[in-house]
Design a protein around this nucleic acid. Structure first.
Lengths: 233, 233
DNA sequence: TATGATATGATTGTCGACAATTATACAAAA
DNA sequence: TTTTGTATAATTGTCGACAATCATATCATA
């Protein structure tokens, strides 16, 4: 939940040994986010432990972490399953995200350095290029990186952590319907406008812009969810 | 991170068996929050496992959860320690809390039922009574319950969960200086005013009021932290 | 004295084994 | 046919043991 990052002279970047459970957590998180383990999948401990050549103890520690991140749900004595994101979940996630990412943008417009903002700008350009080239998978990745970079630049560990884990859950929802990627990517056309406001250090404009951007994404997802529900019936 | 609460007929409330690690997590959380294991304490696995009559495996699972909640920090190959809350942490926590609890209040003014709001009111009265009686420990508990009840009434799992875990971290900070309880409790005089706005369903007033209330608490804590720092020097 | 090497003990990391629980298959009875 | 009971297999829950790592004490050397 909170990185153990002490204030140290910047030129000391301690080598980090990642524990086995932590490595495993990353691998599993990636597998889940990228759809290799789609929502609803039952995570059999024996199978997975064998696949990754670790003991079940190690695996179960990774499960605990992923559970706290909301990517995995545990049923007592029945095992773990990849979380299914519901409409209620989407509502919760997007309402919080609008609030929190708005706050992140406000901090960035005040505190980020010019080079940092240029790095953001670069990501936007790359995203647009990928989208124009029709490479939606890559565009989606870059889209997420841009948002993530904003959270990172807010220099607020908790804010970053919360937004990050919620975005993982969104990606979880996207895996089950690849079509959504294309629809969502269309809204990257909002990014340049938001960037412009950030470069002007104009929080009054940037914050509502990104909040509207997020609400638009939410609208697309909910519309899709409704359409899907009608198909079921 | 997310309760696995399916929509079911309300009269079915499934009996819940709490797993050993989950029970242990609760016990440890309480011990930490109430200062039985003060910040900085090293959590030796053998000792604790013996004290609670569980295996180290079980204990370590509880550690993982508490780590994600920010109550415990792990140092690789060196063990777990009860988190020390820094001034930076307080800054992060209170900035987010003002934002999120404001949102919670806004939801409550819109959605809570009258009886639910009366329950809130009752908590305020109890808190004031305890404070007037000089029972600051009890007053603090009730103070927290009031805030917690607001988060709960927002009917927003993620909002609740985040605010709850941040409030645990605040309590962690309070354990190391009992004097703060008394100073903080003085601001319960804000509660009735906030309650009045909530009863009027007046979000426009209630939200800024609670945000100011939270910022005031933050001011008290930071002032204390500064004073403490000066004493060190 | 200060530094570095070495041995020893304490503690965490990882594992495989067994116990407890749940799922499945199949037979018996209504 | 549906329900109920029972045996079996599959899976999760918990544990103690061993390996790897780290902390401490001791001693040799500059």
């Amino acid at each position: 939940m909170r990185g153990a990052q002490q204030q140290q002279p910047a030129w000391i970047d301690s080598i980090q040994r990642l524990s086995l459970p932590d490595q495993l957590t990353s691998r599993l998180r990636q597998a889940i986010i990228h759809g290799a383990l789609p929502p609803g999948t039952r995570l059999l401990e024996n199978d997975l432990a064998a696949k990754f050549s670790v003991s079940r103890t190690t695996l179960r520690e990774a499960f605990r972490t992923l559970q706290m991140e909301g990517l995995v749900e545990a049923q007592p004595n029945r095992g773990c399953f990849v979380t299914r994101i519901t409409r209620q979940d989407l509502h919760e996630i997007y309402s919080l995200r609008a609030l929190l990412e708005g706050y992140a943008v406000e901090i960035v417009t005040r505190q980020a350095s010019d080079p940092e903002i240029e790095a953001l700008e670069a990501l936007v350009q790359q995203t647009l290029a990928a989208a124009n080239a029709g490479d939606f998978a890559r565009a989606t990745e870059l889209d997420f990186s841009w948002h993530q970079k904003i959270w990172e630049l807010s220099n607020h560990q908790r804010l970053y952590q919360i937004l990050n884990s919620m975005s993982s859950q969104i990606r979880l929802y996207l895996t089950i319907n690849a079509k959504l990627h294309k629809e969502l990517i269309e809204s990257v056309t909002d990014h340049p406008q938001i960037m412009a406001a950030i470069r002007r250090r104009d929080g009054r404009s940037a914050v509502p812009l990104i909040q509207r951007h997020i609400c638009e994404a939410r609208r697309i997802l909910e519309e899709f969810a409704l359409k899907q529900k009608r198909n079921e019936a």
